[in-house]
């Protein structure tokens, strides 16, 4: 579904991603962990199509297409979804109106009829229930004045509405209280199936207790320096990153 080959990316003249290789198949759950500033959000943003990054080299194919060639909206329409680490507040744009436009754009791209007002409302109610979102938030301006946790929940709600084939969740767990974490994780699990994949960017094992990953990767200084199964996350939780940093330092000698 997604194949990243030797991706190198710089921001403001600084090389942040220094050769990323990653393959994600349908139905898989991957976790990407790693110290602060190692390039996790950069990777997610480049995949989603943010403009201020310069791709120095490498290829990314998504659903058989050259991902880096697509405009951000076309990536979304192809089924890529990024739950932002820091969702933007957009005053004056209502959550519901915006989502109706988004859902129908995606449907149009897929050759489906647009949803009418009634159908859309029903879908929204259904999905809001899935992530136990207060319906009053739907009529409010997009993320405006939302608490940290509410913003994260709104991201997952949008994901539920758009039904992507690949969802990248960038630290969706941070800022969520214990109950919200469970609700959101259950929501993600319900959306997953053998055609849909998830990438979880996280610092904590507790999310991975709910959404169990098939693969865990450690991103450090712009490279994936270690990959393993779900046990790797447990090991990191216990021992921190020093041993990995040491391994990398040793290898460099």
């Amino acid at each position: 579904m997604l194949r990243i080959h030797d991706l190198r990316v710089s921001v403001a003249g600084k090389e942040i991603l220094q050769g990323i290789n990653l393959e994600i198949n349908p139905g898989e759950t991957h976790a990407i962990m790693g110290p602060n500033g190692s390039g996790k959000s950069t990777l997610a943003s480049v995949l989603a199509g943010r403009a201020d990054y310069e791709v120095l080299g490498g290829e990314v194919s998504f659903m058989g297409k050259d991902l880096l060639d697509l405009a951000p909206e076309d990536r979304a329409r192809e089924g890529l979804f990024l739950a932002f680490q820091y969702p933007v507040e957009i005053p004056g744009v209502s959550n519901a109106n915006f989502l109706k436009a988004a859902v129908n754009e995606v449907r149009k791209y897929r050759g489906q009829e647009p949803l009418d007002a009634m159908e859309f409302l029903a879908l929204m109610k259904d999905k809001a229930k899935l992530v136990e979102m207060d319906p009053s938030m739907l009529s409010r301006s997009l993320n405006e004045g939302f608490s940290g946790g509410e913003k994260k929940r709104n991201e997952i709600f949008q994901m539920a509405m758009l039904e992507p084939v690949l969802a990248i969740l960038d630290e969706t767990d941070s800022g969520l209280d214990i109950d919200a974490l469970r609700i959101v994780a259950e929501g993600v699990n319900k959306l997953q199936n053998e055609h849909r994949s998830v990438v979880l960017i996280t610092h904590y094992q507790r999310l991975l207790n709910y959404i169990v990953p098939d693969h865990v990767h450690v991103l450090y200084k712009g490279r994936i320096v270690k990959s393993g199964g779900k046990e790797l996350a447990l090991e990191l939780e216990e021992k921190g990153y020093d041993w990995i940093k040491n391994e990398v330092a040793q290898a460099a000698v």
């Binding site: 943010r50 990536r75 979304a76 989502l99 988004a102 859902v103 754009e105």
Partner: peptide, 12 residues
Amino acid sequence: ALFYLRARGLGE
């Protein structure tokens, strides 16, 4: 904000 909306499928 523009990127956020586009990342949800809205054309530029």
